[in-house]
Computed example of a mutant assay.
Amino acid sequence: MSALAQPTRMEVFFALRDRAEGLSVGDLAKLVDTPPNTMSSHLSILARAGAVVASRSGRVVTYIAAPNAVSELSSFLSGGDLRL
Rank of each mutant, 00 (worst) to 15 (best):
S2K: 03
A3Q: 04
L4A: 01
L4I: 15
Q6G: 10
Q6Y: 07
Q6E: 14
P7V: 10
P7L: 04
R9S: 08
M10A: 14
E11M: 14
V12G: 06
V12E: 02
F13S: 09
F13E: 00
L16Y: 00
L16P: 06
L16Q: 00
L16C: 02
L16M: 03
R17H: 12
D18E: 10
D18F: 02
D18P: 01
R19F: 03
R19M: 05
A20Q: 07
E21K: 01
E21D: 15
E21N: 04
G22K: 02
L23R: 11
L23G: 01
L23K: 06
L23N: 01
V25E: 03
G26H: 09
G26T: 13
G26A: 12
D27I: 13
L28A: 06
L28W: 03
A29Y: 08
A29D: 06
K30R: 08
L31M: 12
L31T: 11
V32E: 09
V32L: 09
V32N: 04
V32D: 10
V32S: 00
D33Q: 04
D33N: 07
T34I: 15
P36R: 01
T38H: 10
T38D: 07
M39H: 02
M39Y: 01
M39K: 00
M39L: 06
S44H: 08
I45P: 00
L46F: 09
L46A: 05
L46C: 11
L46S: 03
L46D: 04
A47Q: 13
R48P: 02
R48I: 10
G50D: 09
A51Q: 12
A51G: 09
A51S: 08
A54L: 00
S55G: 11
S57F: 11
G58H: 05
G58K: 00
R59N: 10
V60S: 08
V60P: 11
V61C: 02
Y63D: 05
Y63M: 04
A65W: 08
A65S: 09
A65I: 12
P67S: 01
N68P: 01
N68M: 06
A69Y: 04
A69Q: 04
V70P: 10
V70D: 09
V70A: 07
V70F: 04
E72H: 08
E72T: 08
L73N: 04
L73G: 04
L73V: 14
L73F: 03
S74D: 11
S74C: 05
S74E: 15
S74Y: 12
S75D: 13
S75C: 10
S75T: 11
L77Q: 05
S78T: 15
S78V: 15
G79R: 03
G79M: 09
D81N: 07
D81H: 05
R83M: 13
R83H: 13
R83T: 15
L84S: 14
